[in-house]
Write a protein that binds this DNA or RNA. Structure first.
Lengths: 237, 237
DNA sequence: GTCAAACTTCTTGTATACAGGATTTGACGA
DNA sequence: TCGTCAAATCCTGTATACAAGAAGTTTGAC
């Protein structure tokens, strides 16, 4: 009851002169915002603890606060920003402890991807994985860690797909994204790129051999090492 | 069947009435909304595929569309709601295929909880787990599945905590919540409650014995069975 | 000189207004 | 009767307005 009247009056109750023209085109304004902000958090352009002022972001992206808020809420759901009631949003601060925990879960999920991939992947899919692995070759000498990082990420994403479990793939990709800045950092550790490449080789072999146990074990170790290396890195600072 | 068990309040919130300016006590208006809607989705009061009209919800909760939208965005991030651009929100439809995939991931995560619990839990924590298990005794005869469901959920939640991995705990609790309606359904399968209880016994034993491998294996099976029973249930309809 | 209370300013949370895509309705023709 | 197209309506996405909490600043007392 007491229906809120939308007042569909067609007569001019507003002066259109002051109305800014809506920039239509994209279905959703908050989508590109979300991606841009996420990218900046992930690449550390926005450092952990940095305040995310809604008005400021709105001006920067030339939109109103509404889509900004929606993007921030989504980022908070993803764990990338922390929303403090009435006190604004900040880039989430992840403690080393939390990070270790996340790598631990990641190791389990990737191991399971490997197990399923060994069980279910087709010959063609395996060739795809092998190709992704071989694409890493030229950048595995440690001269171009950024390029290796990118190719490495692709390799893992293909692996996820080979699990033939879309939900698992989604979850693990999400976590991969959240851990991205730390993984990237960790790749700069001496010799890590070379070892990583070798580990991939063993993983591919196990999957192509259909050896579930070995595939899972190699992957678990592969990810756990990243967590450990990262913690070494932290300790050395 | 399908009796909604406890239904904790969840409907005494929209008493604001009167065109009050703003007087709010709660820090955030969207928080209780979120929880209420989530509860209704989980308990199937809002069936999969049901449209979630923003204006309608706004009227029902006596708030504006803004907090409703924010709640919907969060629900979409959690996977409970599907947001179709320009076409409104609907309760997410989960296919049997997806469900199987989710149970599969759940099995892995719980297995890992069990492994970590066996490795890290203290004697006192183990007593807590045992107590939670024994609390299930009286309702394990199958006469009161709803009560067993509740106690069973508590048992698992304690287990998650014993992993001493807060991130894992959070992730697995989240998934537990998402799978809740299906787990509940599945408990009505003949004999399932009794078997579930026995499986818990084996899990507790393995954890108290510090047997990581066995704890993980029992848990994996325990959850996988649920997925399989559910798929049997689907097939029989 | 330091601390605290009051005031000011800033920023968030919610409500409302409005534009344009999506859906429905209705008329017309095959 | 059914299908198609156009107009009307509904509803979402975004902008803007406004109230109240939080932070910052000034002033007053001890």
């Amino acid at each position: 009851m007491t229906t809120i009247k939308p007042t569909p009056v067609s007569s001019a109750t507003h002066d259109k002169a002051t109305r800014a023209p809506l920039a239509q085109g994209a279905v959703r304004l908050s989508q590109p915002l979300l991606e841009t902000i996420e990218e900046e958090i992930v690449t550390r352009q926005l450092a952990p603890g940095a305040r995310l002022d809604e008005t400021e972001l709105a001006q920067r992206f030339a939109v109103s606060r509404t889509p900004i808020r929606e993007a921030l809420i989504q980022l908070a759901s993803a764990g990338l920003v922390e929303l403090r009631p009435r006190r604004g949003a900040i880039v989430a601060q992840v403690s080393p402890q939390q990070l270790m925990e996340m790598f631990d879960v990641m190791a389990e999920l990737e191991a399971h991807c490997g197990r399923l991939a060994a069980r279910r992947s087709t010959a063609e899919e395996q060739r795809e994985l092998l190709a992704a692995h071989e694409a890493c070759t030229e950048s595995s000498n440690g001269l171009d860690p950024d390029r290796y990082f990118y190719l490495n990420e692709r390799f893992h994403q293909i692996l996820y797909r080979l699990s033939h479990n879309a939900f698992l793939e989604e979850q693990v990709r999400h976590l991969q994204r959240r851990l991205r800045p730390y993984r990237r950092l960790q790749l700069r550790v001496r010799q890590r790129v070379g070892h990583s490449f070798e580990e991939h080789r063993a993983i591919v072999d196990a999957i192509m051999a259909g050896n579930e146990v070995l595939a899972a074990e190699h992957l678990r170790t592969h990810i756990q090492i990243q967590g450990e290396r990262f913690s070494d890195l932290m300790a050395s600072l």
